[in-house]
């Protein structure tokens, strides 16, 4: 009689811990729920390490989900955003996927602006989670698929080193049901660091007039900065004085497009709008397609 309450309590604790350990499996999963995803790291070097995971329990047909590369620079070292700025080299991700899976462009979290002798550079001196959207094909069998993720970067401190790591992510597939989204704290925080669509910003708009990109919206946060993603034939100038009217702003950014060197009919102007200074302050994607025929 004396030991009975302790025994019950212990069982409850054990059951609780077991429940906690299975957070990847959602209630209402189909009977043949596949095992959770696995992440195997490859060779590591270059003053940073990468771990990969996904945001779903398993993948169903035509499901769009994310593969997430979580890259951690060594203490004192920093890596670069997709536009490194005045120097450096972008962090890049290449994925090898099974037939039928379609990979989108990686979504980088808000970078930190570093001030160097030769100008500003953009990157990360803290862990950064890069989301890669993937869409499954319209037919899938029950089982597992492997994704090979190769992350390359330049890490700098007083010197610079190139780094590369290959990871394999095994994801379970289900022919009948789409997988549930994971909802853990880590994912929530990583998602919060990603730039949001400009449409989410009150009055958010972008227009190209001549050689100037006008980005506008409403916010009281300061400073407001635009970081462009330079590509071949697309170069950004120093933004002119921002026009502010109460809570509304308009930021004119000079953009130089070398139409002669660009064969494409549609030119993409891309960048990120940063509000405030902290890594968790809001940021927005600036994305504009320009018809080269209408501009020349």
């Amino acid at each position: 009689m004396f030991y009975a309450p302790i025994h019950t309590f212990t069982i409850l604790i054990v059951v609780g811990l077991l429940l906690h350990a299975t957070t990847g499996v959602q209630p209402g999963a189909p009977p043949n729920t596949p095992p959770p995803t696995t992440n195997i790291a490859g060779k590591e070097n270059g003053h940073a390490t990468v771990e990969v995971r996904t945001d779903v329990g398993w993948v169903g047909t035509l499901q769009t989900f994310h593969v997430i590369a979580y890259i951690t620079p060594d203490a004192g070292w920093h890596l670069y955003w997709k536009n490194p700025g005045a120097s450096g080299a972008p962090t890049e991700i290449q994925m090898s996927v099974p037939d039928g899976f379609v990979v989108g462009d990686p979504i980088f979290p808000r970078p930190t602006v570093f001030h160097e002798e030769e100008g500003q550079t953009y990157g990360y001196d803290k862990p950064a989670a890069i989301f890669i959207p993937v869409t499954a094909p319209n037919t899938l069998s029950d089982g597992q698929v492997d994704f090979k993720i190769t992350t390359t970067w330049l890490a700098c401190k007083k010197t610079c080193v190139m780094g590369e790591q290959e990871n394999t992510l095994t994801i379970s597939t289900n022919s009948m049901h789409q997988g549930p989204l994971h909802k853990d704290l880590r994912l929530s925080q990583w998602s919060a660091a990603l730039p949001r669509p400009l449409d989410d910003l009150e009055g958010g708009a972008i227009v190209l007039v001549g050689n100037t990109l006008h980005i506008s919206g409403e916010t009281k946060m300061r400073p407001i900065r635009f970081l462009g993603v330079e590509q071949k034939g697309v170069q950004f100038g120093i933004p002119a004085q921002m026009v502010v009217n109460s809570g509304a702003f308009r930021l004119p950014v000079p953009v130089f497009i070398d139409f002669e060197s660009l064969k494409e009919e549609t030119i993409i102007i891309e960048g990120i709008l940063l509000f405030g200074r902290k890594s968790d302050d809001p940021s927005y994607v600036v994305h504009l397609s320009v018809d080269s025929n209408s501009q020349q």
Binding site: N83, S87, E118, C160, G233, D258, E260
Partner: peptide
């Protein structure tokens, strides 16, 4: 043309 392509590499250690 193009007469400029964003350079990459280590920063110049001025």
């Amino acid at each position: 043309s193009p007469s400029y392509v964003q350079p990459w590499g280590c920063s110049v250690k001025y």
